[in-house]
Computed example of a mutant assay.
Amino acid sequence: MIDPKIRTFLMIVELRNYTQAGKVLAMSQPAVSHQMRQLEEEYNIKIFYPNRRPLMLTPEGEVLLKYARRAVSIANTARQALEDCKNSVKRFSVGITTTVSEYVISRVLADYCLEHPDVHINIVTDSIKNIYDKLQSYELDWAIIEGTVPKNSYHSVLLDTDYLCLVVSPQHPFAGRAQVSLDELKREKLILRSRAAGTRLLFDNYLYNHSDDIANYNIVIETDNITTIKELVAQNFGLSVMARSACRAELATGRLREVPMENFRIVREINLIYREDFSHTDILGEIRQLYAQNQ
């Protein structure tokens, strides 16, 4: 289904070198160059800027790359779907944002597969931006994400609502407080998710909408590893603002303490999202029901 020139193009982009791409594909360098000239003539564009080292895509080349990757992904998905059809198997790739994967979702998907032996689910944990990109390129069939869904981009099913909270070590002076202010928080060391994370975006946007800025806070560590954040906070290396669902177990055992913040309320949605052309919406409904039963 895929033009060999497209596969050559993708290999060049990956290696940023015609000669190296030719070696991997068992082609001569002139043959690789010829295929690229054919692609440029076919689409009437220049794919790479001339005389740039390393190779750099033109804006038109970037567009071609986007659709080339999508075409290869669709072809691979079609091949797998045909093979699964022969074996009466339904296979899905599901994207999950980092915080959500720490929650009940993974267990729900595992339970669903146990109840439906003909269903295989591949879980891909990634940032919300990468998940949207992979949905767009058909590398993912659907996703479960934190935060609201862009309008008119995808269909969505609301699974749950959560909220952000301030968590501290039981040894921290805030642990016994009935409430703290954002001004007090500015004097503390914070351990937060990376800037691309959904919960971090919610916190940053909240501050912006209240005439504040994350730059006014002392962030000592940023990471997407939720377990690391919770461990560092528990050992009193700093405080964190995170989804309450992500630290529910630690709050229950007393390893972490939740401290209310003055005039602070950030609700976080957990949504199941899918493209308009996704044809197994019945499964999504069953997932939603199973999720509700696990609450």
Rank of each mutant, 00 (worst) to 15 (best):
A26W: 11
P173E: 11
Y138M: 10
W142S: 04
M56Y: 10
D126T: 02
H34S: 10
D133Y: 13
V89T: 14
L159R: 01
V259A: 02
T281W: 03
I144Y: 01
N263M: 06
E146L: 10
K66F: 10
R91A: 09
D282N: 13
V124G: 02
D282P: 04
V13D: 10
H34T: 11
L39Q: 05
M11S: 12
V119E: 01
V24S: 08
R248M: 11
Y206M: 10
G95S: 05
I47E: 03
D118W: 09
M27W: 02
V233Y: 03
V149C: 07
S73N: 14
Q38H: 13
K66L: 13
E258V: 07
M242V: 13
S137E: 12
V104L: 11
I6Q: 04
C165P: 05
L114A: 14
R268C: 15
L239K: 00
D126W: 01
R268H: 15
P260Y: 04
L185E: 01
R79Q: 15
P50Q: 04
R200N: 09
C113Q: 14
Q38V: 14
L202N: 11
D212V: 02
S137P: 10
M36L: 15
M1H: 12
T125I: 15
A143R: 06
Y103G: 11
E41C: 09
V220A: 03
